[in-house]
Amino acid sequence: MNPKDFYNLNDIEKEKHLRKTFKKIETSKDEMLLKMNSIVTLKVKHYKTDFYIHDLQVLIEKEEQFLWLVRDCGTNLIQLEDPEYEKGQWKWKSWYEAVKRNMRPNSFYLIDNKNKIIKKINEEKANVIISSYDEKYAANILLENKAV
């Protein structure tokens, strides 16, 4: 369900949708989603809708690589293959840094949604991954600007 549609539901409908989504994951054969669901169940105390509404919607739409940040109060999915720039900086690097600074994730995962692989990584590895994508997209912007 689209997040906008979810937030237009009343509380009873929201709860029903979340239970249905949880059950659908639990009965699926998708090992990656089962593992992610287990992580959310064990580690996320509040704002589980970050995963069940927002992250799942992106995972349905995009077979890409992501960093997944898990916090006591929710999750964040960082879209590594989205080269969008805002205010002269790679959008997702800015988002990643803001989440780390303000929301303090306690677990980091590399998600390969195309091959359905989830791998736990440490914060240092996550920083290296973000830096490598940032450098890649910065180089592309420089090449595009030279061509103009």
Rank of each mutant, 00 (worst) to 15 (best):
L59R: 03
E15S: 14
K16L: 11
D50M: 05
L80D: 00
E63T: 08
I78F: 06
K16S: 12
N102A: 10
L42M: 09
T49H: 11
I60M: 10
I60F: 09
F22T: 11
Q79Y: 14
D82T: 03
K87S: 11
F66V: 05
D72C: 00
Q65I: 12
D5A: 03
K45Y: 09
D11Q: 14
S38Q: 08
D30G: 06
K45D: 10
F22R: 13
H54F: 08
P3A: 02
N8T: 11
N8G: 09
E31V: 11
L56F: 00
F66I: 04
L59E: 04
D11A: 12
R104F: 14
T41M: 07
L18E: 05
R101D: 02
T49D: 10
L77V: 02
V99T: 11
K93D: 03
W68L: 09
R101V: 03
Y47T: 03
Q89G: 12
L9C: 05
Q89E: 15
E26R: 14
L42Q: 12
E13S: 07
M36I: 15
R71H: 11
H46L: 13
P83I: 04
L9I: 05
E84D: 10
H54V: 01
K93G: 03
K23G: 00
G88H: 07
K23T: 03
S94V: 09
C73G: 09
E64K: 14
K20I: 06
E26P: 06
L42W: 00
Y52S: 01
D55L: 09
